[in-house]
Design a protein around this nucleic acid. Sequence first.
DNA 1: TAGATTGTTAATCGATTAACAATC
DNA 2: TAGATTGTTAATCGATTAACAATC
Lengths: 222, 222
Amino acid sequence: MRTAKISDAVVRRLPLYLRILDQLAVHEGPDASLSSQELGERAGVSPALVRKDLAWFGEFGKQGVGYDVQYLRTALRKILHLDKEIRIALAGVGNLGLALARYHRRRYLSEPEFHLHIVALFDNDPAKWGEEIDGVPITPMSQMPEMVRRLGIRMGIITVPAEAAQEVANQMVRSGVRLILNFAPATLSLPEHVHVATADLSVELQRLSYYLDEDEASPVPH
Amino acid sequence: MRTAKISDAVVRRLPLYLRILDQLAVHEGPDASLSSQELGERAGVSPALVRKDLAWFGEFGKQGVGYDVQYLRTALRKILHLDKEIRIALAGVGNLGLALARYHRRRYLSEPEFHLHIVALFDNDPAKWGEEIDGVPITPMSQMPEMVRRLGIRMGIITVPAEAAQEVANQMVRSGVRLILNFAPATLSLPEHVHVATADLSVELQRLSYYLDEDEASPVPH
DNA sequence: TAGATTGTTAATCGATTAACAATC
DNA sequence: TAGATTGTTAATCGATTAACAATC
């Protein structure tokens, strides 16, 4: 793929487009198509932006018709590398980690085309070692390098407390993981070649609460 | 507050600044100060941007010195409305919802200055009704309008399956909630005056997986 | 063919950075 | 005072939108 250097803003929208196509692929017939107008509406972006985003990767549409749902869906899955299994390690099997592990594992087992696969769970609490969550055993953090190599793990999810997050991230990177989804309320500092996505729930709630007193007086129809 | 109309990009960074100040307030003395340079480094943004972001809300710094940690922290908490209790409803008490509810409730109980408070849990499964999670009972969705009014709920968290998300969001808005954090893999369409933050875990993972095959050949020191 | 919609270029808009006078 | 760092303006950069020729 000759992708010059696609901006992060573009990449961020691709999964949204894909999700819409996934839904249409189920609900509509096999040769449904949709315009950039329709896709934009459902994704909450302008039609021009949809066309520009997709054009970075090739010519997927037909003038006067739009985009073939199945074809574009397959293309996006390939672009996002979602056409093959992606193996994931999760570190920190507390409340949140446990819930995420179960949630994902079930999706993996029930949706044949869902290829994000949590194959290893790590925790520093010896009391948890050996315990299995839906068939995946909990392992000491120290075994991460070996497990990553052996199982071909490419992605890490961090659900440890904030204080431990940086150290766990370092351990992941040392083990060869370059893609990290961080749930801990901490800003990680990592080498440039590592991509970090943040999913900090408190930050999102705090951001929302900024808008609390906005426009409180205006009439609300109901 | 005479806030002209602060851009979303700015608001998004405020909680990051606040988190750093929270940490410093604990670890440093009570009259520590820090420069836009230091704050920027820790937050991962440029010093100029830190100064510009803060300047939207007032003059918090001293030339030649920087920002007083306590003072700026208090100011940011006020700007984000985090100085008073914010009551939250959570809809969908499955794996994820349960974990989030527990996680937040414990933070609320253990940190005296953490004012985000989940006070109601909703679910459509009659088998769950009446069950209590850390003291908060699970209630039928139909009681949402009354509960929101009675308990002064201002924010909603959605952790129901994707198919139910839009309907639950509508119900929240009808009940008077204007701030929604959505964990369901669905794009919600809601009135303009409602603010929605998205925390879609699969989307984040899919976004990361775009970078999978990047630069695989380059040498990694270890 | 006529109508619709793409892919793409140019114009606009907004956000970030650079630079510096003011001042602690 | 001299050094450091703010608040702010002007310059730059990048992302989105508008517009339209190409074409299904």
